[in-house]
Design a protein around this nucleic acid. Structure first.
Lengths: 232, 232
DNA sequence: ACCTGAACACCGTTCAAGT
DNA sequence: ACCTGAACACCGTTCAAGT
């Protein structure tokens, strides 16, 4: 299952040496396969064929482990973004493609956005990614001031994710019966859902297309920034 | 300290009865005063002058507790938003003021955004808030389709918060010396910071104004939506 | 230099028992 | 109906000790 699991068989003499890199890679693998809540020092050690206490020789504590994990994912983003070097198009197209590439990486690590947000220390790889984005804006003629605002306005969207707040991913919309029941307290929400299912009957299964919604919001912000670019 | 702490003095006979409402209010108070990481079942019980196990009669588990806490904060937002009823101005002004009011509430509960994001169940109060926002858009002539996209595009910004990603709140910018050191790896970031501190020397202490940046991003999105309103 | 065992101070939660 | 004590299966982390 986990390729990092290469642990010593019960009776074997030597096991692979630990290292910070190996610990961090195993942590990503554990989070990918069993979810972030399964990423405990004890389980991580188990996967590595070691004792929990051994990890503390390579990371100073769990916070440091998570900092390292974020940096590793940041590196993966930077590699993906550098792979086929982005060329052609204006700043907006370049930024757009870069952000959607970052998104692809984060979709492979669905737990990562929450961990990104929990960190307070700045990951060098993440800074490198943001520096690149800033370079794209500078190339597009942004002033430092506007570029600064732009980074804040993008927020986590710069990495390809936003917090979905009222739609458990892939949820089915309420049934007509349920809608009738909700109509009194949530008239506008119900009216909207009715309209949408009327216009597009197919939407009855998982009516929110996360990718499309992400791109809609991203374009809204990028277009807005592009317009301001001329004026400040 | 905590007004909900009204616990029985050591030898007293009767203590105030617990209730779901009282448990939830105490949970908010604990999170406000000691941080969300201090909100454990055991400590919450202590603050209420009860045993941890007693809480389970009023909430089914910690997840349910947090769901309740989100709903309580949602109620506080709805009350703040309803207080001086919003009148006058176009949909954009009304939505803007409402969102900034929600933001004020969340600034009183700095731990709340993270808890909001961790929840998967839909809080009735949160849904009520979103329904209101939807009503404002409908009043502004939004189609159901555009209103749907708009809610996704706003995301957590609808509640008055966004994830800050590269600025630990209130952090001082790097010193000129530190900038020199970073320049090789992060040229664009360093150039931007130098420009900003040159234009505005005062910015040397905490150069990111969270409120201003929030409003910048909010206006960018609201303006973009307003423009689309005419066309779809 | 690298890894470990035993131990500590915490968690959330169950279950049977008290009033 | 409401609350509790003892107990279980976990956490992250320390410290002194092994190789």
């Amino acid at each position: 299952m986990i390729d990092v699991t290469t642990q010593a068989s019960p009776g074997s003499e030597s096991r692979i040496r630990l290292s910070r890199e190996r610990v961090l890679r195993a942590a990503v693998a554990v989070a990918d396969e069993r979810g972030i809540e399964s990423l405990t020092m004890r389980r991580l050690a188990e996967v590595l064929g070691a004792e929990a206490m051994s990890l503390y020789y390579h990371v100073s504590n769990k916070d440091d482990l998570l900092d390292g994990v974020v940096d590793l994912v940041g590196r993966e983003i930077n590699e993906a973004v550098a792979d086929p070097p982005v060329t052609g198009g204006g700043w907006k197209d370049i930024a757009r493609r870069r952000i959607l590439t970052a998104r692809e990486v984060l979709l492979r690590h669905r737990w990562a956005p929450a961990v990104f947000e929990s960190r307070t220390a700045a990951s060098p790889e993440v800074l490198r990614y943001l520096d690149g984005l800033l370079g794209i804006m500078r190339g597009g003629g942004f002033s430092s001031d506007l570029a600064h605002h732009a980074m804040h306005a993008l927020g986590s969207r710069a990495f390809g994710f936003t917090q979905e707040l009222f739609t458990p991913a892939g949820a089915a919309p309420p049934s007509p019966d349920a809608l009738d029941h909700m109509a009194a307290q949530l008239p506008n929400l119900v009216a909207m859902l009715r309209d949408i299912s009327h216009d597009d009957p197919d939407s009855t299964l998982g009516w929110c297309d996360d990718q499309a919604e992400f791109e809609f919001g991203l374009d809204l912000v990028l277009d807005g920034l592009d317009r301001l670019r001329g004026t400040r």
